[in-house]
Write a protein that binds this DNA or RNA. Structure first.
Lengths: 193, 193
DNA sequence: GGCGTTCGTTCACCCAGGTTAATAAAAAGC
DNA sequence: GCTTTTTATTAACCTGGGTGAACGAACGCC
């Protein structure tokens, strides 16, 4: 039986799995294909599955009352994706998840995640570690928003996602950094001097 | 045997406890007294206990490279307090927790929290719900920073913490809102027209 | 290859918030 | 009560990002 190698490696960073568990987990995932601009999740929908990105690129965004889009984050190969709030309590999502490239996502239903929690030896630990990871990620971002100037956030972006520079249109990057495109141009000009 | 009523009520919002469990949990907490300006936690220390605020007022803050303080949040009677990141993995705290009033905190050591997880029927569930709650709180704050103007964040503060207006110096509020004191003055002036 | 669309940069102007410092008001000490 | 310290407001000036529009480059499409 073949298993999803990258997926299992990602589990392996958090918990130990025996061979049977690797195959079991692998079998719970369903592969889905998305075109550019397809949505993995739309505002208002309930997020019923978590996903592991095999290939491609996604973008998380909100829509403000004014209609303006705010890019919150990006995800790419070997990242997990999900609107965790919506997934946890089955509330309607406030956030959109859109594919920026043709993307392949291994999806795991809420019910199958519960099976992992309950049927894999370190399943509960996995759930806790995921939540803790997401929490730390959110806190890190909060600190950056409070502390860093747009210029520093742009530098962090370049540093954290070196390849995304080329793969993502600049107006998504500017929105992620928290400024408008002309302002990001000014920042880039300043930095290149 | 006497139990800490407010504390147990706070548990009761999340999980069901029988009488023996209530007493058991109550017995794991140690009351500590703090003066105004005492620190519950300082940057660099490892956060070794969670706390339930019986009485008083605390303030969470970071210190930027520039030396400037950034107020991240407040906590008061019946709130929990902890630097969860530091508490979880025993890493040095990046954050300070300071008492703004004489404050009484019921503290729970890391080890005793593990006892609750393991010896109370719904202990594990309690741990997960706490983490999920903190995560949702962080996400909500992130959204506000991305989406709201300072004026809106100030209005949210007034709305979310109606009594803190009177109990907290304005320069902490301005820092929480993400602007400097003169700017908060201008916002307040604008709003009072 | 040529056409249209999309995207990035630049310009001129505007404005909210930062900065510094002065002043006024309120608390805290004695 | 008076003095000292702390805190809040105000004013004048500065600056960085927003806005709207123009221009040019790059990309897609037929």
């Amino acid at each position: 039986m073949s298993i999803h190698t990258n997926l299992i490696r990602s589990f392996g960073y958090l918990i130990h799995l025996d061979e049977a568990e690797k195959e079991f987990i692998s079998s719970l995932f369903v592969s889905k294909q998305y075109q550019k601009n397809d949505h993995f999740l739309r505002e208002g929908q309930v997020c019923r599955e978590a996903g592991f990105i095999e290939k491609g690129l996604i973008r998380y965004y909100n829509i403000k009352d004014s209609g303006e889009e705010v890019t919150l984050d990006f995800g790419k190969e070997n990242d997990w994706t999900c609107n965790y709030e919506s997934f946890l309590d089955h509330s309607p999502s406030l956030r959109n998840i859109e594919c920026l490239e043709p993307t392949e996502i291994l999806t795991l239903s809420y019910e199958n995640l519960q099976r992992i929690y309950n049927e894999v030896k370190e399943g509960q630990k996995f759930g806790r570690l995921i939540c803790e990871f997401l929490y730390l990620q959110a806190i890190k971002k909060l600190n950056s928003l409070y502390t860093d100037l747009p210029e520093q956030r742009y530098l962090h972006f370049v540093n954290d996602y070196p390849d995304l520079q080329q793969r993502v249109p600049q107006y998504y990057i500017s929105s992620f950094v928290g400024v408008k495109p002309p302002s990001l141009s000014r920042i880039r000009k300043r930095l290149s001097l």
